[in-house]
Design a protein around this nucleic acid. Structure first.
Length: 493
RNA sequence: GGCGCGUUCGUCUAGAGGCCCAGGACACCGCCCUCUCAAGGCGGAGAUCGCGGGUUCGAAUCCCGCACGCGCUACCA
């Protein structure tokens, strides 16, 4: 029982979850799954001032979307509930009391004003930063007097003033700090809520966490946590500090880097599978060539030993590429199903609802061309539109004169009208013959038809497109093209 | 300022003394395929392995120093 791996993802709901947060969740999840352990989600909502409504649901949604099921946490429950720190205040107070009783912590009555003043002076004099420990040496009488005044107070940890605290980080190896350089940080705030330091240690212990895998920005506070464990005579978990994920400017990922909220990637049409695969490669690798790995392979192969030490820049272009890879791997009906909500969202209401059987015929044509699900409407709109919108002059292909257009369209129309139904193979054969008879290069003739039939200069293969559109639509579009061209008249020259 | 971490192609990375005058992928360029665009195939350009010293017959890999970047330095996490 004591051998079971137990890890946790502990987001604080102070903003929408970004790639960095989610990647941390992913590594914890992979590690747990790899070892058949438990993955716990705990919401660290101890800062009442910075709480963002809806943020914790957004985190949970993101995990859900990616399929990172948690074994204990909000909505799942478990032996260590509740999993919101704001509901575990008693536990923290208990730890604080223990520390107080053991002489490892003390009450501090310094006002915020004094602290601010202190900081100001220190920054000017280049002195050692941090709390000056004024309340640490209060006599009993002084303390009682201060206490009786009933003013607000906090509980601070009494850091050893000598010695060294070191951690054997599973990713970074040995890291050590001089205790004298660490200050007496706050454990319990005056509003009765714990700081991060008190809360993590308390909960990680209570929840039997075996490995703390968190972002590297936490490395500097690890000695504090270790000191608390030591004071409490508790065996600390293993620590592993994950490399950070940076924006293109190499700064810690934040709002100004564009789509950083995980939910935005879903809205842009990224597949959760691609997202998962891509994030796993941000700071971890299997070998020198394998990149495409589904969650099964990932959980099988994941190991802490292969996690990088250095930060990684988030490369959106590569994510887009990988999304394309995953899209191409999807069976057509599956892709169609995922595309549907995007079409419903972005196609004009007048073109809805989308006919499912028709969609199933369209999807193969864009299958290897679409990289983001959200591009579906743009890529397929001409399949749904009644009337196309394009410039008449676009019909005139390179090397052709305007006078070549009407006869070419007429000839195509005539040929198409002969067929009972449009099938791409015979269609190609017969239209090539028409092109030759009209003394037009395939490129010109088909380019012209492409504009007439799709309104675009770029589209999936013409003949397959015509087959999907059907004879009726194709003929009427050619008619429309002839009309449009005539209406434009002299303007073409 | 102090403390800590980090440093291999633009980016993600492989590399744990000779296999590396450094391999893969994205992006970029060219060619092929071709009705356009993709996808695919082939090829190219791109990293004096941050810099300087050592150690060694031999260093991207070990040691020291420096530089630079980032993080922390709150009654925020």
């Amino acid at each position: 029982m004591g051998d079971e791996v137990r890890v946790r993802f502990a987001p604080s709901p102070t903003g929408l979850p970004h790639i960095g947060n989610i990647r941390t969740a992913l590594f914890n999840w992979l590690f747990a799954r790899h070892h058949g352990g438990r993955f716990i989600v705990r919401i660290e909502d101890t800062d009442q001032d910075r709480l963002v409504p809806g943020a914790s649901d957004a985190v949970l949604d993101a995990l859900d979307w990616l399929g990172l099921q948690w074994d204990e946490g909000p909505t799942v429950d478990g032996p260590h509930a509740p999993y919101y720190q704001s509901k575990r205040l008693d536990a923290y107070r208990e730890t604080a009391d223990k520390l107080l009783a053991g002489g490892f912590a003390y009450r501090c009555f310094c006002t915020e004003e004094r602290l601010e003043q202190l900081r100001k002076e220190q920054s000017q004099s280049k002195d050692r930063q941090g709390y000056d420990r004024r309340c640490r040496s209060l006599s009993d009488a002084e303390r009682e007097s201060l206490e009786s005044q009933g003013g607000p107070s906090v509980v601070r940890f009494a850091m050893p003033v000598s010695g060294v605290t070191s951690v054997d980080d599973v990713i970074h190896g040995q890291v050590a700090w001089q205790n004298e350089l660490l200050d007496d940080f706050v454990l319990l705030k005056s509003d009765g809520f714990p700081t991060y330091h008190l809360a993590v240690v308390t909960d990680d212990h209570l929840m039997n966490i075996t490995h703390v895998l968190r972002a590297e920005e936490w490395l500097p506070s690890t000695p504090r946590h270790l000191q608390i464990y030591q004071a409490l005579e508790i065996e600390p978990p293993q620590f592993g500090h994950l490399p950070m994920i940076l924006g293109p400017d190499r700064a810690k990922l934040s709002k100004r880097h564009g789509a950083t909220a995980a939910g935005e990637y879903r809205d842009d049409g990224f597949l959760p599978e691609a997202m998962l695969n891509f994030m796993a490669l941000l700071g971890w690798s299997l070998d020198d060539k394998t990149e495409i790995m589904d969650s099964g392979i990932l959980t099988e192969k994941f190991s802490l030993e292969r996690i990088n030490k250095s930060a990684a820049v988030f490369d959106l272009e590569k994510l887009v590429w990988m999304n394309g890879v995953y899209i191409r791997q999807l069976p057509v009906p599956d892709l169609a199903e995922r595309l549907l909500p995007f079409l419903e969202r972005e196609l004009p209401p007048s073109l809805l609802p989308v006919d499912w059987d028709y969609l199933l015929k369209i999807v193969p044509l864009i299958h290897e061309r679409i990289k983001l699900l959200a591009d579906a409407a743009h890529l397929t709109s001409y399949f749904f539109e009644e009337e196309l919108d394009y410039e008449a002059r676009a019909l005139v292909q390179k090397g052709m004169g305007p006078g070549d257009v009407p006869p070419a369209l007429e000839a195509a129309r005539e040929e198409l009208d002969r067929a009972a139904e449009l099938k791409h193979e015979p269609l190609e054969q017969s239209l090539r013959a028409v092109a030759a008879a009209a003394e037009l290069k395939p490129r010109q003739f088909f380019g012209l038809l492409r504009v007439a039939i799709t309104g675009r200069e770029v589209s999936p293969p013409l003949f397959e497109t015509m087959e999907v559109l059907g004879k009726e639509r194709v003929l009427s579009r050619i008619d429309a093209a002839i009309g449009r061209f005539q209406a434009a008249g002299q303007a073409i020259n």
